[in-house]
Computed example of a mutant assay.
Amino acid sequence: MSTPESPDAAVRELLLVMPRLIGRIKRIPPPEQLRDLDLAPRHLSLLSLLLLDGPLTVNDLAGKLGVAPTTVSLLVGDLSRKGVLERREDDTDRRRRIIDISTDSRPAIEQWLSPGAKAWQHALAPLDAGQRRTFVDTLLRYEQFFARD
């Protein structure tokens, strides 16, 4: 028999809440301006980073996303052609390009992605820094389980 504090009870509760959570997130429609862009989760991660961290280089984005710079370059090229992102020269090193969300796309992206950030801020607010780290590490381990080949 499992108690509310047991791992089995926690797993049971998570197995019930995760589909509801994912279902609710999937029902948040992209703003009209972004609907025809065929955005995948990898695009959302990139856009979230730029929204939260500001303009970044391809290498910075690749490091934070955990993918190769060529992958980021492909994503950036795709979103640049669609007018979502813009590239500019780095004033300190003209060989590098700085990637940012375009001025025209920023309001729609903020409107779409900020509710998720606010929900996480609300959920994590009662936790101290160590508890937040444990929570994030737990989600990362969960993700790694499914990423195994």
Rank of each mutant, 00 (worst) to 15 (best):
K82Q: 14
L124Y: 11
L14Q: 13
Q144K: 14
G77M: 06
D8G: 15
R133N: 03
A108S: 15
R132Y: 02
G54C: 08
D53F: 12
A147V: 04
L52N: 09
L52D: 08
E143V: 11
E32T: 08
D137G: 12
D78T: 08
L50S: 01
N59R: 15
E86H: 14
H122I: 05
R141N: 12
V72I: 14
S48R: 08
F146A: 11
I99M: 04
P126Y: 06
I101G: 01
D38A: 13
T134C: 07
V72G: 00
R35S: 10
R97D: 05
D8R: 15
F146P: 00
K118N: 05
V67M: 14
G66M: 09
L47C: 03
F135S: 08
I28S: 03
P31I: 02
P107K: 08
L16V: 07
P29G: 03
M18N: 04
S6T: 13
V76Y: 02
R87N: 10
P55Q: 12
R97Q: 13
L79I: 10
D53W: 07
L34R: 01
A10R: 14
D149W: 06
L113Y: 01
S114H: 06
P19C: 03
S6Q: 13
S45T: 08
I28L: 07
Q33E: 15
L14M: 12
E32N: 04
I98L: 09
S2E: 15
E89L: 11
L37R: 09
K26V: 04
A119P: 00
L21P: 00
F135L: 15
T138M: 10
V76P: 01
G54Q: 07
G66W: 11
R148Y: 05
R106D: 07
A68Q: 13
S102G: 06
D128H: 15
L124K: 04
D38G: 03
R148A: 09
V11P: 00
W120R: 09
T92P: 04
G83A: 09
Q131V: 02
V84T: 09
